[in-house]
Write a protein that binds this DNA or RNA. Structure first.
Lengths: 378, 378
DNA sequence: ATCTTTTTGTTACATCATGAATATAAATAC
DNA sequence: GTATTTATATTCATGATGTAACAAAAAGAT
């Protein structure tokens, strides 16, 4: 089916991040000649992946010479299904090549059995595809994301906290029978990091770390615009830094504290604006921020990312407070080098759109091409 | 001069790691066809970078068919100068393409002035090149490494601990006038990591972290066989994790403790085997290992490297004791995923050979090619 | 001993993405 | 209007690649 060359992928990546963009500017950024750009844009247009953009540019500020025609991603070029679930809910969506969500649906989970979850996911996916009326030819696949770890014999998924009743999942083999399309998966943190790469921080950074605060603590690392998985696929598993027997900066910890303190909160979504000034929440925030300061310091000194993004299902205002506390104090004693920028992301769709990003990323990233050769490099 | 294609660089990397190797096996690993291998090996042989290796293979174990001829790096193909210095000494060497040290010399430092250091380095380099009798045409350049940090306006070197009398160094411009060859530099940890990549752990790992214990605490991170520098060129600056006002796992800290305890030790090299059972050293080792356990845990949970290597100028036996202590206890509570392997490297030449590796790496790595395009990818 | 099979490596040729040179189009400057 | 500038398209030569056919060397079968 779709077989993109290396420079074509790089071009699409630049267009995604900075489009609309002219052929000349794109060629300059890619380091290829004008004729190559003409050809490349022609074939990408033929494939329906890009199109001429509206000439919405300001008439001011143009110099002499023929005005450039701008190209941009064609949203109808490809689409992708995303499935995210956690212990509470499932969210399914269909996104297009530009990351727009064409259709989405959320379910409260009635069952956490693997079979039930997969049936619900694939059924919903088919409904959404029908609703959105999208050409199946242009569907790159389905991405699934959920909280969980990997074990070393790669693909083997184990120890999913709230899905302990699952048998050991062997991905992608165990997912595929339920879906009439290619299936890919990543854990929640890495999928959310892909969402950031395509539609968030990635617009301004090539290296960043996402710290995802949900019931647990996870995240994803993107280096050189490529999702970094680590030797055992356990990179960015920040939860393991904070012992489960101790207070830790996780949503579960906050929920437990609140319900122990007599507040009627069992799920993260139950925490509303009126809880934010509750002393338990304030204490928790203070302590969590200090714990996260250690993590941020470690990341700054090891990975040295350009930016560290906080995201997840804690209330946005709470995440903002954590950020403020982190910025208030010193990152570490003698921190004399440049500190990463710290930001908060609040996309409500980050989880399931992140899942939908997985197949797009697999299809389009110039990161690396397993098993194939780079030819013609000079 | 030398202009290597992408697949040629990949080939040289595989030959370096696993050579001698047959054309067929190399082609399989690269994912290219047999004719391409014939051509590629022919051009690389013409350029003097590879040669047929002695058929030292065991006559046993061969199946039917024409026996393969093995190719290997030609040591005479390229060479490189390495300069390392720290507050105590300078070490200069000339290495060949295979990493053999053809000539080397060490100096106790009489002066730490920039000008004096550069004159000494370049003078020694010229002497060594003359001694080794190597063709200047095949010299890729000079690599310089020393302890220090970078500041963000890249190239600007600042805050070198014991070289505080230096003005701000603007690399490579400030180095080049002293040398009659291209000059590259990295700080000590990153250069030592390159040494590991080419001649140490890199033989078995694509992802690893080097923790370098000298007077300070530094290191380097190699991901996907590529030195990772971070957004501000401060990746793997582990020293900043341990506040200078507190006891920390650095050689300086140990020296200070020893001399405060009445032991005649001012430099790390003064610490000999007879000191290892001294109670101060034993206490320091115990405490340093516990501090390093935190770092190792953080690395395992963030970077997830396949292996973590300890190296540096502490006595090897001391490093081994640290390793044993780390292995003895749990890495962290609930550490349920795969832990990185932990090893100790003891190459006495790791610092200056690491420096000499910089120009080779810049010339030969397939990692990434700034400012140039990948063409012909399909 | 010789013939077959297997594996390695080479040669001839077609393919395909590329850049240089050139041409064309559309705007501003004079 | 004409020259200049900038963007894009077209033509053609180049260079790295893969396919197919072939040559060479060794083990095993007869």
């Amino acid at each position: 089916m779709l077989d993109l060359g290396y420079n074509e992928r790089r071009a699409l990546e630049i267009i995604r991040a900075d489009g609309p963009i002219s052929r000349v500017e794109l060629g300059r950024r890619l380091g290829v000649s004008a004729p190559t750009m003409t050809r490349m844009t022609a074939t990408l247009t033929d494939q329906g992946l890009i199109r001429e953009a509206q000439p919405i540019e300001p008439p001011e500020g143009r110099g002499r010479g023929k005005p450039s025609s701008m190209i941009d991603l064609d949203g109808d070029g490809l689409h992708s299904v995303g499935v995210f679930f956690d212990p509470d809910e499932m969210a399914v969506c269909v996104t297009d090549l530009r990351g727009n969500i064409r259709a989405e649906r959320r379910h409260r989970l009635q069952s956490r059995q693997f079979d039930d979850l997969m049936r619900l996911a694939s059924g919903t996916a088919e409904e959404l595809l029908a609703e959105a009326g999208l050409d199946r030819e242009r569907l790159v696949g389905c991405g699934i994301s959920f909280p969980g770890h990997f074990s070393v014999d790669s693909g083997r998924l184990t120890r999913i906290p709230q899905f302990a009743d699952w048998r050991a999942i062997n991905a992608p083999g165990d997912f595929e029978p339920y879906f009439d399309m290619p299936v890919h998966h990543e854990n929640d943190g890495k999928a959310a990091a892909l969402n950031e790469l395509y539609y968030g921080v990635g617009k301004r950074r090539d290296n960043f770390v996402l710290i995802l605060l949900t019931y647990g603590i996870g995240g994803g690392i993107v280096l050189r615009r490529s999702l970094y998985r680590g030797a055992h696929r356990n990179a960015a598993e920040f939860g393991g830094i904070f012992p489960k027997s101790q207070p830790r900066p996780s949503g579960q910890d906050l929920c437990d504290l609140l319900s122990a303190g007599g507040v009627e909160v069992t799920r993260l979504v139950d925490i509303g604006a009126h809880h934010l000034d509750h002393p338990i929440v304030e204490q928790w925030t203070e302590r969590a921020a200090e714990q996260l300061r250690l993590l941020v310091l470690m990341l700054a000194r090891t990975v040295d990312p350009g930016e560290i993004v906080f995201g997840g299902s804690l209330p946005l205002a709470l995440q903002e407070r954590i950020r403020e506390r982190l910025l208030a104090g010193e990152l570490g004693e003698d921190f004399l080098v440049e500190a990463p920028e710290i930001s908060v992301t609040g996309m409500s769709s980050m989880m399931h759109r992140g899942a939908a990003t997985i197949p797009l990323y697999r299809t389009m990233t110039p990161g690396h091409y397993p098993g194939r050769a780079l030819k013609g490099w000079r």
